[in-house]
Design a protein around this nucleic acid. Sequence first.
DNA 1: AACGGAGACAACCGCCAGATG
DNA 2: TCATCTGGCGGTTGTCTCCGT
Length: 208
Amino acid sequence: MDKRPCSSQESEVRKGPWTMEEDMILINYIANHGEGVWNSLARSAGLNRTGKSCRLRWLNYLRPDVRRGNITPEEQLLIMELHAKWGNRWSKIARHLPGRTDNEIKNFWRTKIQKHMKQPGDNSSQNPGQTSTDLQHCGGASTSTQTSTTEDGVENYSPIYTADHHLHQHLHHNHPSFPPNTLPPPETNNENFWGMEDLWSMQLLNGD
DNA sequence: AACGGAGACAACCGCCAGATG
DNA sequence: TCATCTGGCGGTTGTCTCCGT
């Protein structure tokens, strides 16, 4: 689909982890032009990436309202309830968890819940015909490892968008589809993110 | 202090549905 | 009406980090 035959003068489509520079280009471009038509966006922005890749990067990581960090117990419960209802409809589930992406929920499910299901001591996991409703045992009862993320009681968000609400306003101003009230919690935790704060402020400096 | 394994997460791939010409 | 393009979704894989030995 997005694999266009690359002409001799067209550079190869880049794959793999995004660089800070690419992120900046994407953020800057979207701030000025808005989202949409990802393939042409990728070309116009000068990114050697597929439109898909740009879209994914934006939705899952760069979007200002993306909320990162540990899933709260409330969210865990909600995820399990919704999964029981809808199964692996991650995007549908994600819509009910503001700031969470389908990818994040999917990863959460696979790493935390599915792993828990497979634990030998966990009887509820032994039945292959088990409905996902059964999973509510894992989350609701929070018997063991599954809740480790919140055992310390800290909601350890790691927002890429660290309260840089100037940019948020900027984005929202230039592209009203940015939800104005979807800021992540104020506490910041940058530990695992290479200067996203820097990136945003650099983007700010770039201006239009 | 070094190594290996497990866990977590970012990113890619393939498929499908809807929109458009 | 058909063909093509784009966006979206779910599944899977690759890589990095952390922790235990």
